[in-house]
Design a protein around this nucleic acid. Structure first.
Ligand SMILES: [Mn+2]
Ligand SMILES: [Mn+2]
Ligand SMILES: [Zn+2]
Ligand SMILES: [Zn+2]
Lengths: 141, 141
DNA sequence: TTTCTAATTTGTAATGATTATTTTATAATT
DNA sequence: AATTATAAAATAATCATTACAAATTAGAAA
């Protein structure tokens, strides 16, 4: 996701209103490494915004997603997790505590391999989901 | 997934009853390359089994999943797709028609790379989800 | 500053996949 | 054939997500 100031510019250009709710969601996402869900963002905001609606969080995240500002993860089949980091990277989910962390290794050569050997479809994107036990959980046992 | 005969043996050993419904679901899965959903299996079976229950399909697939006989895909956030092929492979989903096809290239070296550079978690499994346009859809346009 | 209006927020209802529960039926054993 | 533990079926409950309609408001224009 862009910086808040750039994002504000983009919104103005796109005719999107800069509501307090939107700005609050932008700020919550900015630099957020926790891969939050709709509900976790909603919960964290309704302290400061008692009238905040879950629908607004859904709508704002969908808008940011369509703008390409944030990523939607498919690593958790139960609910969507969002990521303000839209640079190419992958994820690891701990089977024990459910935490999702970044895997920053570059696998761009994967695309080339697949494109070479599968000329029958055009790949536009890919993501890798890793699973296992995180550091914290393995130390507990 | 094992062959039907081996699967029948495993069930007997595990004390699982061989009901007509289960056998029908086994047969539907056997060699199935379509990555079916619970509902698609249910729809295809209720012709021959008018009393077939959606719950039975859910239960049987869950049982097979826990036995390690089938895989659950996370490539479609809307619903679970199942795969009787439990050999390591990956998937491609067409953004246009939604079809899910196999990507059979071996990426085992990925695990090694990640393990080397991320000693802070233990990876037990990973999968790659590719997206793009399939052969059929690209020829249509 | 005030007015206007399209965009947004909010509250609520609807949807759809999945899970839970309860009752009825049956596979497998004796 | 009788018994019993397991499974099937029907139904209800849950939960994330989407749809909708009414109330609000950011931003532009007067
Ligand atoms: Mn991330
Ligand atoms: Mn497959
Ligand atoms: Zn953990
Ligand atoms: Zn296609």
């Amino acid at each position: 996701m862009d910086s808040i100031v750039s994002l504000v510019q983009k919104c103005k250009k796109a005719g999107l209103k800069l509501t307090p709710q939107r700005l609050a969601i932008f700020k919550t996402l900015d630099g957020n490494k926790t891969h939050p869900t709709v509900d976790s963002i909603y919960q964290s905001l309704k302290k400061d915004f008692p009238t905040m609606s879950l629908t607004t969080v859904y709508n704002t995240l969908e808008t940011l997603y369509e703008m390409g500002e944030i990523i939607k993860l498919d690593i958790d089949p139960d609910k969507a997790h969002f990521d303000p980091d839209n640079k190419k990277h992958h994820h690891f989910k701990c089977s024990s505590c459910g935490k999702i962390v970044d895997v920053l290794i570059n696998f761009s050569e994967i695309l080339e391999n697949v494109e070479l050997q599968n000329s029958n479809f055009t790949i536009t994107d890919f993501n890798i989901n890793f699973r296992g036990i995180c550091d914290f959980c393995s130390k507990k046992n």
